[in-house]
Each structure stands twice: as structure tokens, then as C-alpha cells.
Design a protein around this nucleic acid. Structure first.
Lengths: 200, 200
DNA sequence: TGCAAGACTGAACACTTGTTCAGTACGGTG
DNA sequence: CACCGTACTGAACAAGTGTTCAGTCTTGCA
């Protein structure tokens, strides 16, 4: 899980991230993390002061990772889909605990979750505004709500991953699943899903 | 919160539901519920045997409520939007803790959450299949994934309510907010959001 | 070599948790 | 009336929690 020559501090952080992601931060004790990292519980308090500060530091590291991913995306690739989920699956190693951790962040009332959502929302507003200006979207008189709609739908895939996998039999975050999902989403957002009530 | 002539057992159930919905079931102690219901902690164990069985009973009552709502919807109204969120906001009293509880259910790995999602998924599959047969939808070769997409987008509104309210300034589950949201959703699903890459 | 600073631990602390249990109050039935 | 079952409580228990602390081991610098 962690490279064996990592410092104890780094091992604590990495294992805390994994455990928080898997079970939710409130369900993980200092002793759990200590056992996973192979250190004594007291060492965690020595390095981080309190359980809460460890949690905050994990939050900050996650936010920093996303800042890095967004920067990398902004410089290298062109603006393609502006999908947070695709950004994550493309930029993170396959077994990364980060998607699960983000799920926990967004669903609890943590300030880090609010920060991430707010950042993604502004990104969505900007991208859709650019597309508006380029004439690539159908006009709307409620761009704020439309951005929220698109972002929420994007995150829904992440939040409901398990349930969607249960229902359809395919992990929607796998390569194959994501492709099917993206096909549906793209089709829905361009051609629509329902036919207009007054055809002609 | 609860009618004063309700039995202690009913008061315990109602207060447990509210507290579970607000904080998440794992963050609520037996003593918390006892204090809210105005009884001793031991009485909760007397009526329900264990904390876990109380939790299960709350889950069952929530599922029963949704069964009732779905039945009522099926008999009275015609199939309009098949939106779970609209079903909830229309069929529940304004201050109901149920939406928040469902959020908790769906986010944790609880069997009750899986049960609800599976039920809603089948409902979505059926409704879209009917619309397919009636020629009210654009054709797709992946109806299973399309149903998952529509359902996930619907639930996203519920799961991300707080964040959407923070970002847009409007509670998307309020009457006004829901109307704006529905307008966006309907427009997106009929006319599309993005213009096709090859216009003509 | 000596010493200071940091990494690190085991044991203990005060507290909260779910649960048990003996016992009280009460309401209906024989 | 006596009796029994049920609702209900206060006190206690064992286990788990975050945190503290005195003390050991190691490392690098004077």
C-alpha cells in the first residue's frame, strides 16, 4: 500500500486516507490507523497533535491533488468534456482511494467537500459560458442552474457507483463502463432523450 | 416533533429517524435518541432489543413509506416524469426527515439503500421501456445504462442538495428551486444541451 | 565524547459507547 | 383482593474511544 521506505508520517497519512475513504472518517479510530501503518497510536498524536488535525491534513492533501490534476489538465489537454469523473479516472492510478474519499467528502458536511464542489461548480460555469460564446450550446436563460445540473449529473456517477454497478452489472467507473456511460450522456445532451411534445 | 399522545415506542422511532437523517445513523447514540424521545436509554433496548434492530426497524418504516407513496402515485396520477425526487417532495410534508434519511441510506452500504435503489431502477427501466414503445423517446441500443443515467441524475439532486444550494443560492428542493431544476432537466432531455457537432 | 532533539512506545487517564439487570409502577384479569 | 405481564428506570458493566505522559532509542551536531 505504501512504499516501505516511506517515513512513518507518510505511511500514517496514506493509510488514514485509505481507511477514511473505505469506511468514512468517523468510523476509523486512531488505533485502526496506527495498526494499518505499523506504528503506535501515540505516534499519530505526536506527529499530528490530534485526530482532527490528521483528518484536516488528509483533506488538504486531497484538495492539493485535485489542484494538481486540474492544472495538468488545463495545460496539456484541450477542454473536452469538463467531466470531473473522467478527470479522476484518467489522472489517478487504478486502485486509488481518492474517488471513494471524495464521495465521503461530498456527502458529509465537511468544509473540504464544500470547497471541492464550489471549485468544480465555478469550473463548470466557466466552461459552459465559453461554449455559449462559441455557439456550441443551446441557449438557456438559467445558466447557473444548468451548470449545477450538469455538475450534479457528473458527480452522480461517482456517488452512486456501487448502486449502478449492482443494477447494471457493470462498474461504471471501469473503462468499459465509463465508455457506455459517456455514450449515453453524450447522446442525451446532444440529441436529447425524449422526443419533443409538439414534433412539427 | 411527535404528537404528545403517541406511545413511547412511536416517539423513539420518530426521533431515531430524525436523528439518523440529520447526522447519519452511526453518529447517533442510544442515549441521544432516549434524550430526544424523553425516555431512558434502557427503554429503547427494552422495546427493540438492540440498537441495530432499532436501526433496521427505522429502515423498514422508510421503505414502507416509499412503497405507499409509489402505490398512491401509481393509482391516482398518470405517469408524468417518473422522478423520485418529485415523488418525494410532492408526497411528503415539508419538514419531513425522509429525504435526508434516504441520502444517508444511499450513501452508506446499507441493504435498505440497495433495496430502494434497485426498486427505483426497475421502475425507471419499465417507464422508459413504455415510452420507447410509445415512440416518445429517441432510440438507444443501451436502455439499461440509459435508465441508470436518468435515475442517477434524478437522485443527484437529492444527494447534492446542500452543495447545489450553496452554489446557486436557491434550495433546489424548494418549490421555486425545483421548478428551475425541472425546467433545465426537461430542456436538456428534449432539446439537448450541446449542439450536434455536424449541424447539417 | 557528550548532549540535545526528535522519533517512538507502553501504560495509563477520563470519557462515551451498547448492553444488562434488579427492581418499581401500573393496568387489566382471575 | 391477589396476580401477572408489561412499561419503565437507575445503576452498573465491559469494551472502545481520544489523549497524556514518562521514558527509551536513535541520530546528528558541538
Amino acid at each position: 500500500m505504501t512504499s516501505p521506505n516511506a517515513t512513518s508520517r507518510e505511511r500514517i497519512l496514506a493509510n488514514a486516507l485509505s481507511l477514511f475513504a473505505a469506511r468514512g472518517a468517523d468510523a476509523v479510530s486512531v488505533r485502526d490507523i496506527a495498526a494499518a501503518a505499523g506504528v503506535s497510536p501515540a505516534l499519530i498524536l505526536h506527529h499530528f497533535g490530534s485526530r482532527e488535525r490528521l483528518r484536516q491534513e488528509v483533506d488538504e492533501s486531497v484538495i492539493a491533488t485535485f489542484d494538481y490534476l486540474l492544472d495538468a489538465e488545463a495545460t496539456t489537454a484541450s477542454v473536452t468534456t469538463a467531466s470531473v469523473v473522467e478527470l479522476m479516472t484518467a489522472g489517478l492510478p487504478p486502485g486509488s482511494p481518492l474517488p471513494a474519499y471524495v464521495r465521503q467528502l461530498v456527502l458529509t458536511n465537511s468544509p473540504a467537500g464544500s470547497k471541492l464542489f464550489k471549485r468544480w461548480y465555478e469550473l463548470t460555469v466557466n466552461v459552459t459560458a465559453q461554449m455559449d460564446a462559441a455557439g456550441q450550446t443551446n441557449p438557456t436563460d438559467d445558466p447557473a442552474m444548468r451548470a449545477a445540473f450538469l455538475l450534479a449529473n457528473d458527480l452522480a456517477l461517482l456517488l452512486l457507483q456501487r448502486h449502478i454497478e449492482d443494477a447494471t452489472g457493470v462498474d461504471p467507473l471501469s473503462t468499459a463502463g465509463l465508455q457506455r456511460w459517456a455514450t449515453i450522456a453524450l447522446g442525451a445532451y446532444t440529441d436529447g432523450v425524449f422526443v419533443p411534445p409538439h414534433p412539427e
